[in-house]
């Protein structure tokens, strides 16, 4: 019968309309009609979406305890592996071009990530042998221009290990386990650990 399909369609939208009001839901229930889906959107600045723990945005650099105790040794593996090549690293060196060391490790003098190029693929995290780079879930970083404001340097990228623990507890636990295992492996021959050259 012509027209029935049209009316059925109208019934669907009306039901959804009524179902968005609390009183409407009561009415729908009273009439034994299937409930509508209700309001599905969230009012953004007031309520924020709960992201999954694994939610990833842009990478950050992890430090232990103090900001000068970076895990990063400026080995530049992530720089090489980054598909869009948005990471730029220079190792801290003295006048004779010898690597400087802090806490027994080399460290980056410059560590820039151009987040306007970064595509949040997480490959840098996967390839880092030192667990020094992790994915942040801070995503409200909109700026008015895409020049220097979106070029994050070392200071902007630094986050503490506690912060990592806080935003991604499960992942941090796995990472810590790996770090502990690694430390245990390299601990017994104490002098060897010190002489291990930073991965080139």
């Amino acid at each position: 019968m012509i027209g029935v399909g049209v009316l059925k369609g109208m019934a669907v939208t009306l039901r959804q309309f009524v179902g968005t009001y609390p009183a409407g839901r009561v009415l729908l229930k009273a009439l034994h009609l299937p409930e509508g889906n209700g309001i599905f959107t969230i009012s953004y600045p007031e309520t924020k979406q709960q992201h999954a723990e694994r939610f990833r945005y842009f990478p950050f650099l992890v430090y232990d305890a103090t900001p000068d105790n970076l895990r990063c040794v400026a080995c530049r593996i992530c720089e090489q592996e980054c598909p869009p090549q948005c990471i730029h690293i220079t190792m801290a060196k003295d006048e004779q071009n010898r690597p400087l060391k802090a806490n027994g490790r080399t460290f980056p003098a410059q560590f820039d990530i151009d987040v306007s190029i970064c595509m949040s693929c997480r490959i840098c995290v996967d390839v880092c042998p030192f667990e020094a780079i992790e994915m942040d879930n801070r995503h409200e970083i909109a700026t008015h221009a895409r020049g220097p404001e979106l070029l994050f340097d070392k200071t902007e990228l630094l986050r503490s290990a506690e912060y990592f623990q806080q935003i991604k507890p499960t992942e941090a636990a796995v990472v810590n386990q790996r770090l502990v295992a690694k430390a245990a492996k390299s601990q017994p021959p104490k002098p060897a650990a010190a002489s291990t050259p930073p991965a080139a």
């Binding site: 939208t13 009306l14 959804q16 309309f17 968005t20 009001y21 509508g36 889906n37 209700g38 309001i39 599905f40 959107t41 009012s43």
Partner: peptide
């Protein structure tokens, strides 16, 4: 407003 409600949205608010 009405169309938004039909689409499970709030509309201008």
């Amino acid at each position: 407003k009405i169309i938004a409600r039909m689409q499970n949205r709030l509309g201008p608010n």
